[in-house]
């Protein structure tokens, strides 16, 4: 289990590219600076997508990523922080 604290959860299960990032963007904008959004996705591509997002967008930081179960993961979890 994760140690990363979060303030809000977005379940993007079942959604495909580019929807997890698009929905997460909408949610993360509703947070206060410094708060963290936990995004649950079933899209394998979302792992790189969230890394790419954090790389180009100065307004967000990716503070954690994990997949469950560790072997043959079915869900991918991303922790996105609205930059302070």
């Amino acid at each position: 289990m994760s140690e990363t604290p979060f303030d809000k959860v977005l379940d993007a299960s079942g959604l495909n590219c580019p929807m997890p990032v698009v929905k997460a963007r909408r949610e993360v904008r509703s947070l206060e600076p410094g708060q963290v959004l936990k995004v649950i996705s079933t899209d394998r591509g979302s792992v790189k997508d969230f890394q790419g997002w954090a790389k180009v967008d100065k307004k967000v930081d990716l503070v954690g990523q994990e997949s469950e179960p560790p072997e043959d993961p079915v869900t991918y979890i991303h922790y996105v922080q609205l930059a302070k």
């Binding site: 590219c17 580019p18 990032v21 698009v22 997460a24 963007r25 180009v56 967008d57 307004k59």
Partner: peptide
């Protein structure tokens, strides 16, 4: 449109 929406979502 996938690229457009994706790019807009990441702040472009």
């Amino acid at each position: 449109f996938v690229i457009a929406t994706g790019a807009a979502a990441v702040g472009q």
